[in-house]
Design a protein around this nucleic acid. Sequence first.
DNA 1: CCGCATCCCTATAGATACTG
DNA 2: CAGTATCTATAGGGATGCGG
Lengths: 136, 136
Amino acid sequence: METTKKRSDCPLSCSLDIFGDKWSLLIIRDLLFLKKSTYNDFLKSAESIATNILASRLKALEENGLIEKLEHPDSKAKILYRLTQKGIDLLPILMEVYSWADKYLTIPADIKATIEEAKKDRDKFISQVTTELNIK
Amino acid sequence: METTKKRSDCPLSCSLDIFGDKWSLLIIRDLLFLKKSTYNDFLKSAESIATNILASRLKALEENGLIEKLEHPDSKAKILYRLTQKGIDLLPILMEVYSWADKYLTIPADIKATIEEAKKDRDKFISQVTTELNIK
DNA sequence: CCGCATCCCTATAGATACTG
DNA sequence: CAGTATCTATAGGGATGCGG
């Protein structure tokens, strides 16, 4: 069922086989920027993902080594999802998408400001986000 | 039918609504790098897209202003697909995906060499590809 | 509560055959 | 050559159930 056979040897094609859908990168976004880390956090996101879809994406993301499951410090009942380095390294891709969207789509003003701030010193922004995630 | 209602105001979410599927970026790749420009060119790609999917993606890409349809210089029967600037500007995103894939996936040696060459002088590579496409 | 799993139903993706 | 038509498979939405 989770065979995910690759369509070709093309690196782009293989990458899209992993995160080329409408939901995976939104989960990555939540983990990268929005300090979300539990199942219910993701469920509450603006795009309102269905529970079965979320479960299947989390499983796929974990199988592909982009995220990992940990015990939540607050409660035994909770699970904490965290990005691996492989997952964190999707950040530059997301930044380019934001940058493209900033140029061609209509963006809420506050988000627009953040994007342009991040673009100004891209490397600094990347290391900042990365460090933050690694500390946690 | 092509209502493509957006799921949220998030620029990433909106971008994924446009090209966040397993095929659109492969068509963009074909146009950007592989000098493909007709329906049958795309059909022949390694991933072997189905004809109806190709048709629907081309339509969506055109509606979203990423590509445009032109008369083919060789034949009246042919249609030439070309990237708009909005489409060409997806190149930085693709390059980051290639870069990520280069780090984490198993890549054919020749493609790996090309990726790393392009990364060395990224801006030059981008302007080179862009110029080439604009000339045609 | 929390993290799913399951079921049911609909919508979209996709494979294949065929057409203007 | 550039698509449709038709059919089937999978993705996805929404409600609910259930063990820890």
